[in-house]
């Protein structure tokens, strides 16, 4: 244990995980955000027409939606990364708030592979790795389908190689 604030002296920090998710995930996220934004705009437009909500709220919402569609998915794509090693899985998700999760191979309980209806159109899949903790599932969205399949196989094989009930 060292003095607090020693960050500046030694500068130890976690690096980003090695692999990006598929670039197609960015398109999928932009599309999702655009659909959400359009729905919100239509709802507000109806409100403006029917209940005489002031029209400048539309301009405000439009600005928010533009940022939501143009900036957030790109930011999310830059943050979303993953990596596996012999002994651990390491994921990074989020955009404004960045969350990094590390789980040892020996503690992995299940490995889930999922293709949502939208993700399937883009040839993408998500992999979720659960441990015994209620707070500890590691989830990687927007993986290329082939990469995701290989990842699931690798993880399952490596997790099986370790004894114990993973709690």
């Amino acid at each position: 244990m060292s003095e607090p604030g020693s960050n500046a002296i030694t500068g130890i920090s976690l690096r980003d995980p090695a692999h990006r998710v598929s670039p197609r995930a960015r398109v999928m996220w932009i599309l999702g955000a655009a659909v959400e934004g359009i729905v919100a705009l239509v709802v507000l437009l109806v409100a403006v027409l029917v209940w005489e909500v002031p029209a400048w709220t539309l301009a405000l919402l439009l600005a928010v939606v533009v940022v939501w569609v143009a900036v957030v998915p790109q930011w999310r794509y830059l943050v979303h990364r993953w990596e596996t090693s012999e002994t651990a899985v390491y994921t990074q998700t989020g955009w404004w708030a960045r969350e990094r999760r590390i789980a040892p191979m020996s503690r992995i309980q299940t490995v889930d592979y999922a293709e949502g209806p939208v993700a399937r159109v883009f040839g993408l899949a998500s992999v979720t790795v659960t441990t015994a903790s209620a707070a500890g599932a590691l989830s990687i969205d927007g993986l290329d389908r082939e990469v995701a399949r290989r990842l699931v196989d690798d993880l399952t094989r490596q997790a099986d190689a370790v004894e114990g009930d993973a709690t």
Binding site: S2, G5, S6, N7, T10, L14, T87, I102
Partner: peptide, 25 residues
């Protein structure tokens, strides 16, 4: 502080976190 967090995690379970850590200097 991030350095404290990484060091603490690595002392608790040696080797797990350090494989993903960078030490610049």
């Amino acid at each position: 502080p991030e350095a404290d967090a990484v060091r603490l995690a690595d002392e608790a379970l040696p080797g797990l976190v350090s494989q993903f850590a960078t030490v610049p200097r």
